[in-house]
Simulated scan of single mutants.
Amino acid sequence: MALSYKARKRWSLVILLVGLPLYIMAAVTVVSLIERPTIWVELLVYVGLGFLWIMPFKFVFRGIGQADPDAPQNGDRTGD
């Protein structure tokens, strides 16, 4: 299923504004359930969970920072 540029842009905003805070709360909850590890182990766990979070959504964020590929090029406007 291929998403359009606009759809990927919208989904990326939803994922960042809703999904990321929920994932952060879940990660903190899971880490707090275990006995407090050393700061380095805790940092490695959070970094690992951060990479784990982005892997399923990699295709959504790819190319979002670029110009819209479906937009008219060279200032060509339709409807002028």
Rank of each mutant, 00 (worst) to 15 (best):
A27W: 01
D68N: 15
D70G: 10
A27S: 13
M55I: 13
P37D: 03
T38P: 06
Y23H: 06
K6T: 09
F59P: 00
E35I: 01
A71I: 07
I54W: 13
V45D: 00
Y23Q: 01
D70V: 07
I15D: 11
T38F: 06
A7M: 11
Q73L: 05
L16Y: 10
P72Y: 00
V14F: 13
V47W: 05
Y23D: 02
M55E: 08
A71V: 08
S32Y: 03
I54N: 05
W53K: 00
D70K: 11
I34N: 08
N74P: 02
A7T: 12
S32N: 10
G19L: 04
V47S: 05
A7G: 04
W40R: 09
R62P: 01
L16R: 14
F51V: 11
G48P: 00
T29G: 13
Y5T: 03
G63Q: 09
L43K: 04
V47N: 02
A27V: 12
Q73Y: 00
G63V: 10
V30E: 10
V14A: 13
V14I: 14
E35R: 06
Y23N: 02
G19W: 04
A71N: 07
Y5Q: 05
V31R: 00
F57D: 01
Y5N: 04
F61I: 03
L13F: 03
L33K: 04
I34L: 14
G63E: 11
W11R: 13
R36T: 15
I34R: 12
V28Y: 11
S12G: 14
G48E: 02
G65N: 10
A26D: 08
L20G: 01
M55Q: 09
L13I: 07
V28E: 11
N74S: 11
G48C: 02
I15P: 02
V30F: 15
K58E: 11
P37F: 02
L17V: 14
L43Q: 08
L33H: 04
M25H: 14
F57H: 09
W53P: 00
P37G: 01
M55K: 10
L20A: 12
Y5H: 12
S32I: 00
K6S: 11
V41D: 05
L17N: 15
L44T: 12
T38D: 15
F61A: 03
N74T: 06
Y46G: 05
K9E: 10
E35D: 09
G48N: 00
L52N: 02
L16D: 15
L17T: 15
V47I: 13
D68R: 07
I34D: 08
L16C: 12
P72I: 01
L16E: 14
D68F: 07
R8Q: 07
L17I: 15
K9Y: 12
M25E: 14
L44R: 07
G19C: 06
A67C: 03
K9S: 13
M25C: 15
I39G: 06
P69A: 05
R62A: 14
V45W: 09
P69H: 05
